[in-house]
Design a protein around this nucleic acid. Structure first.
Ligand SMILES: [Mn+2]
Ligand SMILES: [Mn+2]
Ligand SMILES: [Zn+2]
Ligand SMILES: [Zn+2]
Lengths: 151, 151
DNA sequence: ATTTAATTAGTAAAGATTACTATCTAGGAA
DNA sequence: TTCCTAGATAGTAATCTTTACTAATTAAAT
């Protein structure tokens, strides 16, 4: 056991504790999905999580991954991130942060901004309903796409 | 001819001018898709545009609507808005604004905020690539969903 | 160990988007 | 105006993504 738990096991504990607290069964499959999420720093789609978990649990089904991710998202343990092209993606990072999204390839990068976080929620927004969170999305072209790479 | 062109025809002119400027054919189908977009203030998905246009052009195909919307979005004449559930949606409103999104039903409302628009783009973001625009997304529960309406 | 309700694997179904091709047409040239 | 043709469409098929179904399995409480 390391003197300090590493970042990954911190995240894993947060996820598994959340499942226990929700009173759902902590199955082998759900545990491995959590382990996968705890070990990534990007915004994986279902397919990516499925591939990662299947390396350790070869018999897991795609549907189970869909359900595990939906459960974690519904419990607020991971975030959903709106996809501009194709598949739904998830965000294991629940600390307040914002996104840079490439309009061409869909690459998504995290960044933080105290300046943004200090802005009060506009009054207009409260009129629409109960505000849960405010997030900035910056659209642009990532470095790879900026230079004519066809990949 | 009215003394001042109404809002809708302003939008329509912007869209059709954009298509002409791009050098593509201004077909009857594309014109009607533009007309539909110009007459709407929400964030329709492909199905919604298809239904609206089909009332006037009964033989238009769904694929044509998909292609027309993709073309308009690629030309920067309308916006794409990331869907949290299911279908891709489009935003005919290209003036700078922000969104309130209901996490439950997906309802999306526009709002403007001078305070938000004045924030400089964080330096971290520039490191990821060329920034095109910055937009705020507020997640929450709309009024309908706040009170236990099952619809 | 027994029990049971929740969960899963495997597959089917549904829903959304893209691809294909014969036909048609917008827009330029004659 | 008429003719021509590259580009666009209609109708449909194919692909991709997500959800639904059911018999078998299993976490976890007793
Ligand atoms: Mn993130
Ligand atoms: Mn909008
Ligand atoms: Zn990119
Ligand atoms: Zn709602």
């Amino acid at each position: 056991m390391p003197p300090f738990p590493d970042e990954s096991s911190h995240h894993l504990k947060r996820l598994t504790d959340g499942l226990k607290r929700a009173g759902v069964k902590l199955t082998h499959q759900r545990l491995e999905v959590c382990r996968e999420l705890a070990g990534v720093t990007d915004h994986p789609d279902v397919e990516a999580v499925f591939h990662g978990v299947r390396a350790r649990v070869p018999t897991i089904s795609l549907d189970t991954v869909y359900r595990a991710l939906a459960l974690l998202a519904d419990l607020g343990l991971i975030g959903r991130v709106g996809a501009l092209q194709g598949r739904m993606r998830f965000d294991p990072n629940m600390t307040p942060h914002h996104h840079f999204v490439c309009a061409r390839c869909g690459a998504m990068h995290d960044f933080t901004s105290a300046a943004v976080d200090q802005i009060p929620i506009p009054d207009d927004a409260h009129a629409f309903g109960h505000v849960h969170a405010m997030q900035v999305e910056i659209r642009g072209l990532c470095r790879r796409c900026q230079f004519g790479q066809e990949s």
